[in-house]
């Protein structure tokens, strides 16, 4: 009916439109999903601070700098005072290193905070609480990946709602037990010889899941931002904290 050339044109045109639509769909559907887009975000920081050096090689525990993760919702990025605890006395080994630390020293002397670029962030309508998870003896690695091997921190896990719920439903698949390097408190006195090993796991996963089992029995409305201080001998005890439901209002309130 139509000319051969027209037929051909329709076919080629259709193919091109189809291909473009497919590519656009792929980009929009996958490229902008949080689990794909956020993972691997690795901004440049004002000071070339390296976790690989400080946490990996020097074995400074995470909580030395991120102290407060255990008792508050927010895990703070350290103040320059914390850095100066050591850098006041540690002399740089050469000019290159001196230049790297200069920004830090200048900021400290001018009493002005270093503006670290934030990487991990859940949307403001969802509430995440570090202390709740640290006290359940969940290692930082479960959610942040092997930070102690990263020269520059990047986001390692998607932090989407599906990801949170996956772990809440079957923690045994996702939890990494407390390791010495994270400074996560386990309530037990540990053997000296394991303390140097950042791959060593204090809390075996089955025991841990047994302890945080109530997570599968949602308790509605039991959640408060401040963890009720359940203490043993005057010190907060992690295992006795409350229960974590899959209840919407646990995270959206």
């Amino acid at each position: 009916m139509f000319s051969r050339r027209f037929d051909m044109g329709v076919k080629v045109g259709g193919a091109i439109i189809g291909a473009v639509a497919a590519v656009v769909f792929l980009i929009v559907f996958f490229g902008f999903r949080n689990d794909v887009a956020d993972v691997g975000y690795r901004p440049e920081q004002p000071v070339p601070f390296s976790h690989k050096l400080h946490a990996g090689e020097m074995q400074i525990h995470c909580q030395y700098c991120h102290a407060g993760a255990e008792v508050s919702a927010h895990s703070p990025v350290p103040t320059s005072q914390t850095c100066m605890n050591c850098h006041m006395a540690v002399t740089p080994k050469d000019e290159v290193q001196e230049a790297k630390i200069k920004v830090l020293k200048d900021a400290y002397e001018a009493n002005r905070p270093i503006e670290w670029v934030r990487i991990h962030k859940v949307p403001d309508y969802a509430h995440f609480n570090h202390s709740r998870h640290i006290r359940a003896q969940i290692d930082c690695q479960s959610c942040h990946g092997p930070i102690e091997q990263m020269g520059v921190v990047s986001q390692y896990k998607p932090l989407t709602m599906g990801w949170c719920l996956d772990c809440h439903r079957s923690p045994e698949k996702f939890i990494v037990g407390a390791r010495p390097i994270s400074g996560v408190f386990t309530g037990k006195l540990h053997d000296m010889k394991n303390l140097y090993d950042s791959a060593y796991i204090f809390t075996p996963i089955p025991a841990q899941v047994g302890e945080s089992l109530p997570i599968t029995e949602p308790q509605f409305g039991s959640y408060e931002t401040a963890i009720p201080p359940v203490t043993v001998a005057g010190i907060p005890h992690p295992k006795k904290a409350g229960i974590g439901p899959e209840n919407c209002s646990a995270c959206h309130y």
């Binding site: 030395y64 408190f185 006195l189 540990h190 303390l195 010190i235 005890h237």
Partner: peptide, 15 residues
């Protein structure tokens, strides 16, 4: 108690 020592150990190792 072990708990107190454990807490001390945990904080000592960290800080």
């Amino acid at each position: 108690t072990e708990f107190v020592l454990a807490r001390g150990q945990n904080r000592f190792n960290t800080f």
